[in-house]
């Protein structure tokens, strides 16, 4: 955390709406609510899923290569560009200008994109080919047919 007085570190502002609990909005003549002193916010999915609002983007997964990691065709991905990608993260990456979602593998200084489905090969950069991580997938949202 940024302590007060540490001016050399820029502080990111939160763009998420700041909700304040309404503590006893008005005075009642009858019984005061016994819950009055326990006022809190209802759980908010945005706050649970999104740590950095400015760096978070939604993506759509298309295909079945990540099935064993729980990402199915059509899932909505929450992607955070503020997270530093490391070995084992699920990432959105560009290969030759195309976007793909895969597991990042960085072993012995070599970068690979691993599929989570045995029928799909891993992506190993060829000579002169670059893989760039666009952002780290922090959740996958699945909607069921109702």
């Amino acid at each position: 955390m940024n302590s007060i007085g540490n001016f050399s570190e820029p502080v990111p502002l939160s763009a998420a709406s700041l909700m304040l609990p309404i503590a006893a909005g008005y005075i009642r003549a009858g019984f005061p609510s016994p819950a009055e002193d326990f006022e809190v916010n209802r759980l908010d999915l945005t706050q649970i899923l999104i740590q950095h609002p400015q760096s978070t983007y939604f993506w759509r997964a298309r295909g079945i290569s990540m099935r064993e990691k729980g990402i199915d065709d059509g899932d909505l991905l929450v992607v955070d560009r503020a997270v530093r990608p490391v070995h084992g993260h699920i990432v959105v990456a560009t290969v030759d200008g195309e976007f793909t979602v895969k597991e990042l593998s960085q072993r012995l200084g070599r970068m690979r994109l691993k599929a989570a489905n045995p029928t799909f090969p891993d992506i190993v950069p060829k000579e002169g080919q670059t893989i760039e991580v666009w952002g780290v997938v922090t959740s996958s949202i699945k909607r069921f047919v109702l």
Partner: peptide
């Protein structure tokens, strides 16, 4: 409208 419309979010091949 990649970032503001759910139908328009970018697609990543899985």
């Amino acid at each position: 409208a990649y970032t503001t419309c759910l139908a328009d979010v970018p697609v990543a091949r899985a």
